[in-house]
Each structure stands twice: as structure tokens, then as C-alpha cells.
Design a protein around this nucleic acid. Structure first.
Lengths: 206, 206, 206, 206
DNA sequence: AATGAATGAGCTTTCATTCAT
DNA sequence: GATGAATGAAAGCTCATTCAT
């Protein structure tokens, strides 16, 4: 399952498109094979199941998410504010460049059977700790002064996730512009009274 | 379709449970009838279609949402801040008391066929204007000082929607407590420099 | 499952014919439905499975066997020799009149899944005791003087079962004639030195 | 097909096990290759067909049967009684040492397609004449006094075949002991009034 | 001598839906 | 109002088989 072959990539892309369009249950594996341009049996040669294909697609989504996030975080220093902005930027990139990946993760996990669900949840758990760690570090450093760090964390994730619902690549907003705005919004939540000293912020607050 | 009969209510509840658990496509209308304790044909007497049942369930979800929201708004005055808090409170109530209704609306609309989708979207459009109007009023009144009112509006809706993902009726947080917290967070977004004068907020800011 | 409906009888007859001709695994349930003159789904309305149909057919075979045997035994008195002859006669009737039923029982039990196999074996166990009881009674009465009662019992069952392999209803031998001959052969095995006094046998032996 | 190579032997053994367990139609040639520890294509290198493999397995069964029988007959003289005992002994050995071979022959011939069926039947016809010849010789010599030589022949074959159904190599009966018993039973059938002069039998009867 | 990849046909099963009662 | 019986279509999946390597 690790690192899909070129042929498997085709099935993953095609399958994702179908699953997003119709939902898992309303998608036919026959149609997926057809749109991938191969025979139905070829698909079954590579994935033993419809279930198995779903798992591969979901895992690929998590892989993408992790890669995009980690690339941004790697560029950021140790400062929690910097890290938070990097994380938000990563999420915005993920939601704008790979909107379908995100959509699937949100809706089709319920269709995983126990075995696959276990594998998947294990992967997710690792990823979820990223945001939690950043928030905790910011709170510990006295930078994030919110009274509700948990609600903020969940809210920020929800906010950036929702970008996929309205983002239009042909529209005026570039992902970078959006990322800047949402980083600011995220800080509005975490630092309700403003940041003691923000490098990106010209406003003087004392 | 307006105002479901008692028997229809049974199908709506049972069907919603199934659709949420498996998704529309993976749910069998046979199973729904079975769990409703009647024959399959009985279901067909009340709804001409699986599609028709889905539409009824979705419409019922919107009815519930509208009722909960409007009840809160009716208690609020004209002040945009008050209205916003009431709206957040309504949304929190909806997401905590009727989590499945909200889940369905988010995921299963794609399974509506054109005819149903049209009817449904019309209903939704009305509802969506509530939040838009409140934000516009607050901005016009100089109360909501955010530079990004659209992003705020979308973010607040996303934040409160996400409550359904973690809310536990057996947990320590009551819906009212959650509503207070999220109203505060929403205002953190809309008024990044604090409110000139907030009735619900003891903190003195000048 | 008890007492099949007229419609079920059709499926049983047709299915048996197919299973005997091709074996369970090589038989298509589509073909069975077709030859029964109904749609494939109709079959599935009455039997939830291919497996389920097989079980019904096997059970019907045991029912038939029991009925034919018991009818003969009911006509016989208490004398073990008389009983043995009746039992042989019953078996000959079963093998000549219902050859397929017997064939299936012998070969397709292996295709029963555990649950069905359990139900089936339970039924069989009852039936198997008939012959065992007769032989034991005859031995106890000093009538069956063989040194190998167990081998005789098994051999007699094997002998009569094999009749289905060559019996031809258009041939010169009537089932009654065959029954007489095989009763005699069975007694040759059980009483290697002849019977002290056989009521059904005109030959004088001393 | 004559004299299978070592690799072919592997397929024959593995295939026979599968065919006996599930029946021809329910057995997958994929599974057979897998259990033989080679790739599916390897099997196709040696046998052009599933059908072809079945034929090879059946032929191997007949080869084994013939070899075991002929080995016993070769040790016997010309006396029909002696020959009959040798034949029974051979059959007992076959059914106890190679029970699966016998089982297949009985049940899976129906799955042979015309071409294979012809080849197979030709082989069988030769083998079947053995028993027929012995019985005819015994009758001609006035040794087998039964009124029903045909029924006896068929019955004896059925009796010994059934041994495979209950024989347990871990049980108390050795094949030799069983052979002795069944030879005696066979003679009980063929000579209902005892043998005029039996070398193996101390009992004087005139 | 052996393999991985692919295929088309067919399988069992389930589905939404209809209709006579 | 409600049911049992039936149906056509399509689903997911497996099969025996082939072929390039």
C-alpha cells in the first residue's frame, strides 16, 4: 500500500473523483475502471476490494495532507506563532490544491470496515497531534492568551477546512492571500487581546 | 411534504439514522422499512421514491434548523451583536441537539437529483441570508471591525458546525456553556480589536 | 423450511436436477431459475441463498427417504427378518423411484456450510439408527449369525445404494423383483449358514 | 499425460485434495496453484486446462487402482475363489490407502467434457472386466452358486467402495484384517450355501 | 520453465421498484 | 392503508484463460 505504483495512481485519482461525486455507496467500481480506461478485472488485480481501493484513496489523502503541512512547517522556525502561521498556510494549500482529498477524508471514513478503519485512525492520530502541539507550545509560552485553547484549535481546523467549499482557482484570491488572511483570523482567536509583539503586524499594542 | 404525518416521522427518523450511518448509496430502503417495523411496500405508500425520502429527510433537517435558529433570534433585539450571539446560540443548539440532521445536510445533498436539488437549494438560500444580514448590519453599524467579513462569516459557520464532531451529551459542557464560548470566539473574529461596548462582556476596554 | 410450498417444490425439483447433473459448484442459480420458468429474483425471494436452496433440497431428500422407509417398516411386524426385508424394500424403492435424491445426499453434503451441515447431520443421525436397530435386534434374537454385524450393515446399505447406478425403469426388473433379490442377498450376509426358518422363503433348509 | 513428471505429481496431489474437498466446480485453479506453492501460470504450463488437470487426476486414480489390483491378482493362482479374494484384497487396499482417488472417480467424472469422458471411459471399461471375468469363471466352474451373479458383482464392488467412508488408519482394523472379512462376506454372497471346498475355510459343508 | 498483468464472461447477490390483492 | 410476490437492472466479485516477457 505504501507508495502506489503508477497504475495504482490512476485508480486512486479516478476513484477519488467518483467517490467525491457520488459518495462511496453510490459509486460503481465498474464505472471507475471504465473511466480509468482499463478492464474491471485489472482494477481487481491491483486492489482486492472496493473497500481496499477506498482505503488506498483515503491513505493517499492523508499522505498528501501530511506532505503539504510538513513542507510548510519545515520552513518555519520554533516560534509558535510562526509555526501556527505555517500550519494554517499548509492547510490552506491542501484545501485549495487538493480539495477532493479533504472532502473524502471528511465524509467517507464511515464506509471503512473495522480493519481499515483501525489502520486509518492510527495514521490520522499522528497527524492530529501537529496542531495540538503548536497550540500547547503557544499557550505555554504565554503567546496564545485565549481562555479556550481546545475550542480555538478545533475552530481553526474547521475554518480552514471550509475553504474548499468556496475556493475558486479562477477567482481573484490566490492561496497565498487566503493563507495570510486565515493566519490573521486564527491569531484573532488565539490572542483575543492582540499579540504582545508580532513581527508581521505593524500595529503598536502595549 | 409539508408537515409530515406521524407515520412519516418514523420513516424520517429511521431513514436519517441509516443515511448518516452508511451514506445514501450504501443504505437500503429495505433495511429502513425493516427498522421502522413495517413492510417495504408501506414505505412506498408514503414516499414514491428513495429519492423522495431523502428529500423529505433533508427538508426536515432544514425545517429543524430554521425553527431552532428563529426561536433564538426571536428572543434577541435589533442590536447586531445580540443577534449574532443569538444566531450562534441557535446553531450550537442545533448541532448539539440534532447532530444527525446537520451531518446529512452537509454530505447527502449531492445525491439529490436535479428536481429535488432545486427545491432544496431554494430553501437553503433563504436560511443562509440570516447570517449574511447580521454580519452586514454589524459592519454597517461600525461594530464588526474585521477587514474580512466574508471570511469571518464562513469561519463562524464552520466553527459551530464542527461542534457536532466532538460534542458529547454526557460530557461536562452544556450547550449553553458552549454557546457562550463560541459567541465570544465569533466576536474575536468580527471585532479583532475588541468591542467598543459589549453588553455581555464585563471587561472594560477603551 | 418444513413442508415446502408449491412454488418451493418447483425450485427443489429443478435445482436437484441441476445439482445432480453438474455438481453444486458447477451449477448456476441463474440456470435453475430459468429452467424453473421464473425470474432469478423470484428464486431469491424464496431462498436467501444458493446454499439455502441446497439445504432445502438435501432436507427434502432425507424427508423422502424417511417417508419411503417408514411406509415399508410400518407394514412389517416385529420380526427382525421381516423388518430387514422391509427396510431393504424401502431402500430399493427410494433408489429406484428417487435416484437423484439419493445421489445428491451422497455427494453434495460437502458443499454445506457449517450451519447447514449441523442441521443436516442432526436429521441424518436419526435416520441412520433405523438399520442399526434392526441388525442389533436380529443379532440379539440369534437370527443374524454373522460374525461381522457392523460390516454387514454397512455393506447392505452400500449394496442397495448402488442400485441407482444401473437401474433402468425401462428395463425388465421391477423394483419389487429387485427388492426380493436384495433382501435375499442381505440375508446371505447376515445369516451365512442360512436361516433357521424363514417365513418369506419357500425353500426348505435344514 | 502418461507417467506424470515430479512437478505434475505435485499438481495432481494438490488438485485432488481440492477437488475432493469442494468438488470440481467449487474448486479454483488459482487456489490449487497457490497451495502447490507456484504461480498460476506455472500450472498452465503443465496443463492446458482445468479440464485437463481433472483428467490427469482421474487417470492417475485409475492407474493407481489398476496397479494395486493387478499386484494382488498377480500373486493369486487361477482358482476363481483365490482370484476373487485377491481382487477384494486389492480393492480394500485401494480404498484404505488411497481413499481420495476412489472418491474422485465416483463423483467428478460428470465434469469431464465429451473428449475427456471418452478417453476415461475406455480406460475404465478395461478395469471393469476384471471383476466380471472372475465372477463368470467362478460361475462356470460351479463354484459360485448364487442365482444373481450380476447383483453379486455390483454389490461386492459397492461394499468394498464404502470402506473408504469409515476406514480410520488410526483405528484397530488393519487393511489386511478388513480384506479378510470382506472376502468372506463376498463369498457369502456368491456361494449362499457355502463353498464345496474352500482352502481357507475349515468348516465342512456338503 | 515461469511469472505478472490483464481480460471477458460469468457468477451470486442485492437493489429499487411495481402490482395484484 | 398495507402486504407478499415478483421483476429487471445492476452491483461487487471471481473465474478460467491468455500473453508478453
Amino acid at each position: 500500500m505504501r507508495v502506489p505504483s503508477p497504475k495504482q495512481r490512476v485508480f486512486i485519482e479516478t476513484g477519488r473523483k467518483e467517490f467525491v461525486r457520488n459518495g462511496y455507496g453510490s459509486s460503481s467500481i465498474r464505472t471507475i475502471a471504465q473511466e480509468a480506461g482499463v478492464s474491471l478485472s485489472a482494477l481487481y488485480y491491483h486492489y482486492k476490494n472496493k473497500q481496499d481501493l477506498l482505503l488506498a484513496i483515503l491513505m493517499d489523502g492523508v499522505d498528501t495532507y501530511d506532505a503539504v503541512c510538513d513542507a510548510e512547517l519545515a520552513r518555519a522556525g520554533d516560534d509558535p506563532v510562526e509555526q501556527l502561521c505555517a500550519f494554517v498556510r499548509g492547510n490552506v494549500k491542501f484545501r485549495t490544491q487538493f480539495p477532493d482529498q479533504g472532502r473524502l477524508i471528511a465524509t467517507e471514513v464511515r464506509n471503512l470496515e473495522p480493519e481499515g478503519a483501525r489502520l486509518y485512525e492510527e495514521r490520522r492520530r499522528v497527524g492530529r497531534s501537529r496542531m495540538r502541539d503548536i497550540v500547547e507550545a503557544g499557550v505555554a509560552a504565554g503567546l496564545f492568551t485565549t481562555k479556550y485553547p481546545d475550542d480555538c484549535r478545533r475552530s481553526i481546523l474547521a475554518m480552514v477546512s471550509a475553504i474548499a467549499n468556496w475556493y475558486d482557482p479562477a477567482g481573484p484570491d490566490t492561496p497565498d492571500m487566503i493563507a495570510d488572511r486565515y493566519a490573521e483570523l486564527a491569531l484573532n482567536l488565539l490572542c483575543p487581546n492582540g499579540l504582545p509583539r508580532t513581527p508581521n503586524d505593524g500595529r503598536e499594542q502595549e
